[in-house]
Design a protein around this nucleic acid. Structure first.
Lengths: 260, 260
DNA sequence: CGCGCGCTTGAGCCCATTCAATCACTGTGG
DNA sequence: CCACAGTGATTGAATGGGCTCAAGCGCGCG
């Protein structure tokens, strides 16, 4: 586990980050998308960070090889963005899954293993729960059970939608859909406006997530900008000018060949 | 629910189909991929088909609109192949998810809804469990809980792999990967040989699942055939001649541009 | 048989990729 | 303070591959 830098306590700024959490607790459990289960964790184990639960700060680009983790744990994302990065034999890179604060990755699977490395796409913090602890928590708290089922199902539907994007959408449509995905999945920062989406990582990662080349992503953004659908004051900040049109595009409003 | 044809009992040939199930029971629960939970269902409710659990036969192409089902049920696939079919505004068609006997689709999600229609890609049979019944079953049987968690996680990893296929693989690579997916996910029929894969639906559906055009799929199959990697004695039957090479291809061994 | 349907094969054309250059920005050291 | 390299985003030009349109073929069915 040399790639993991253990934290003495938590050296990422918790109070600053707490604002990003729905639950608002300083000691976030990482599972705070809808229902916060911090209190459940505390009630079950009488501690905010019981034995078998550890937190790590990950630098941008830092990887966790699933095989190196003990007890096939559950990994919760606290802050930042985490992706599952797979490589083909000739080096092509794909981000198959995207995880934001509140999402979790369950590495416990009897019959199937995860392809790819868990990679921080931006400075991130994760919480690693060893499988026995996790199972205990599930057994003790029905609220947690429900939350997890829901969260898992939600992620599943998300992936189905993403498959839809990758399968038949044109580059611009994919980008439009991606913006909505970000809007839905990431919590809006207080400082930003309504229709503003912060893009949490670079063009290359966007491209690898959308099945495109970085250049194509760049071109897509400029096209959407010149058409007045979006604005990008900075490379990692998008303001949506015409939500209706953008939604139209995301839903197939920009086919390859204009219908004859 | 006019699109559903209710069954008086079960008019699909159970004894014939039972051979396809791991559990081998005549009354298959539809959740028999690894562990059979038929006995759990029976123990919990004292019946093979408790109230709130119904079976339906679906003709090829027949759809179930998720919205028309009561109590956001859990749907288990008993026989055949079921897909989630989504359409873009201009008619482009995508099969975002693929479900085989033993898989299930959980429509209970508080925060997110399923995009697309549940569609039988071949003559199929499904089991619809209303949510309350399902929850009861989960509550009563820890074995079922474990099985479901595992099944869900497995499906999730499957989808991640599929995203990898769609994002960066060339058509031929996708087809190769698809063959392995079929090989892994569908139970081999007794009558067939070792390295034989039965393709359970047509080119169009394959194309919509792999994000290609039917013509491209066809071309891909012929290319693989002429290269001696596979044989296709019939349009829906593939025998793998060179497993090693096919795996190589599925893993990125056929880039767009041969390395200069 | 004729018809329909689905799979296969062929020809031409967009358009995303590829290769390459430029630009914007950051941090480092002289 | 500027020069410099390094990184990432953007823009440009040319290519090739998958899509589109279309025809041919094989098979089951009325």
């Amino acid at each position: 586990m040399q790639s993991l830098t253990g934290l003495e306590g938590c050296d990422f700024n918790e109070t600053e980050r707490a604002a990003e959490n729905t639950c608002g607790l300083v000691h976030s459990c990482g599972f705070h998308a809808r229902n916060c289960i911090c209190s459940e964790l505390r009630a079950a184990f009488n501690a905010d960070l019981p034995k078998g639960v550890n937190r790590f700060a990950l630098a941008s680009g830092q990887e966790i090889e699933p095989e190196t983790l003990p007890n096939s744990p559950v990994i919760g994302v606290l802050t930042g963005s985490v992706g599952i990065v797979a490589h083909l034999s000739d080096g092509r890179r794909t981000i198959t899954g995207l995880f934001f604060p509140g999402d979790y990755i369950n590495l416990a699977s009897l019959n199937r293993q995860l392809n790819g490395a868990i990679t921080a796409l931006a400075p991130s913090a994760v919480q690693v729960m060893e499988q026995p602890v996790f199972e205990n928590l599930l057994r003790l708290s029905s609220l947690t059970r429900d939350h997890f089922m829901d969260q898992m199902n939600s992620l599943l539907f998300q992936l189905l939608d993403h498959s839809n994007d990758l399968a038949k959408k044109t580059p611009i449509e994919r980008i439009a859909a991606f913006l909505f995905e970000l809007k839905n999945r990431t919590l809006p920062r207080k400082s930003t406006q309504f229709n503003t989406v912060a893009i949490p990582f670079g063009r290359r990662d966007i491209a690898d997530y959308l099945g495109l080349q970085p250049e194509t992503v760049s071109r897509g953004f400029t096209t959407l900008t010149t058409e007045g659908v979006i604005n990008l004051p900075e490379a990692d900040l998008v303001t949506i000018q015409d939500v209706h049109r953008l939604r139209q595009i995301a839903n197939g409003g920009r086919p390859r060949k204009r219908g004859v």
